[in-house]
Design a protein around this nucleic acid. Structure first.
Lengths: 161, 161
DNA sequence: TATTGTTATACTCTATAACTATA
DNA sequence: TATAGTTATAGAGTATAACAATA
C-alpha cells in the first residue's frame, strides 16, 4: 500500500463525486463502445464499418451515392471515402458507377459484407447484453428513457457514428 | 422534403433501435462532454486541464511529481507533459524542482490557476445542471446508480480523463 | 459554374521509443 | 542499471482546400 496508489484512488473518488454524471456517463459510454469495437476488430472491421454495412443492408432497394450515405450517417464525404476504402479493401463493399450521374459512385454491399454484417449484428447485440447484464430489463428501459431525455434534440438528425 | 433527408432520419431511427443503448449513451456522453469542454475552452483551457488543476488544488499539501500525477489521473507521462506544457504556457501552473530528486519536477498551481479552477468548477457544475435539467433530482440519482452498475470495475482505479 | 469523389494537407490525440539527466 | 521527464515520431480521427471528372 504505497502513498501514490492511495492518492490515485482518492482522485478517482473526487472525479466521481464532483462531476460525477459527466465522469460516469463518459466512462460507461467508453466501456461499451470499446467492448463492441473490440468485437468488430476481431472480425476485421470496426463499429463504424458495421454501421455503414448496416445502412447498406437496410437500404438495399434504394441505392445511395457516397455523398447521400455520408449525409445520412452524419459524416463528411472525406470520412466516407476513408471508411469505404477500408470496407472495399476487405471485400465487404464494391463501388459501382451511378448510371444516372457519371460523377457519382454507388457503394454496394457484397455477399461477404452481407454475411459479416449479419454475424456481427448478433455478436454486437451479445456484447451489449453482456455489458448491460448487471441491469434488469426494467432498469435497461429506464436507462434508455433517461438518456433520451438528456440528448440534445437539435442533434438527433445528425451523426449516428 | 427530399428523399435524402427522409432517409437520414430513417437511418438515425435504425441506429436508435438496433444498438440503442450504445448509441444513446455515447450521444449523451458526447453532448455533455462537448458542452463542458466548450465552457472550459471559452476560458482558455479544457476539461482535461481543469481536471489537472482540480487535482493540484485538492492535493495541495502533498506535492505530486509529474509521474505520480499522471499515474493518479491515469494518463501517460508524455500526455502529462503535454497537458502541463499548455497549463504552464497559460500561467496556470509552474514546474518546480523536487528538492529530494533532481530528476523530478513538482507541478504547482499558480494563483491564476487557483482562481480559474474555482471559477470553472462552478461554471462546469452549471453546465452539467443545464444538460441534466430535463431530469428530476430522483431521476438524476437513478441515472448515476444505473451507470455505476455497468462501469467495468477493474477500470475504476484507472483513468478519470 | 456547381457538384461528386479523391487526394493532399493539417491539426489533434495518443502511444512508443530514444534521449538526457539524474539516481 | 533504473528512473523522471522531454522530445521525436508515428498512427488514428477529423476537417479544409485543391483537384479531376462530370453535370
Amino acid at each position: 500500500m504505497d502513498e501514490t496508489v492511495k492518492s490515485a484512488e482518492a482522485i478517482t473518488q473526487q472525479c466521481l463525486q464532483h462531476f460525477d454524471v459527466n465522469w460516469l456517463i463518459n466512462r460507461a459510454a467508453h466501456g461499451l463502445r470499446e467492448a463492441m469495437d473490440a468485437e468488430a476488430n476481431a472480425h476485421g472491421t470496426s463499429i463504424r464499418g458495421h454501421i455503414v454495412l448496416t445502412a447498406l443492408v437496410q437500404n438495399d432497394g434504394r441505392p445511395y451515392s457516397q455523398l447521400a450515405l455520408g449525409h445520412a450517417l452524419g459524416v463528411d464525404k472525406t470520412t466516407m471515402t476513408a471508411l469505404l476504402d477500408k470496407l472495399e479493401r476487405s471485400g465487404l463493399v464494391v463501388r459501382t458507377p451511378d448510371p444516372n450521374d457519371r460523377r457519382a459512385r454507388i457503394p454496394v454491399i457484397t455477399e461477404a459484407g452481407r454475411e459479416l454484417q449479419a454475424k456481427l449484428y448478433d455478436l454486437l447485440k451479445a456484447v451489449e447484453a453482456r455489458v448491460l447484464d448487471p441491469l434488469t430489463p426494467e432498469e435497461r428501459e429506464t436507462l434508455r428513457s433517461l438518456l433520451r431525455k438528456i440528448i440534445p434534440m437539435e442533434h438527433v438528425e445528425g451523426s449516428c457514428m
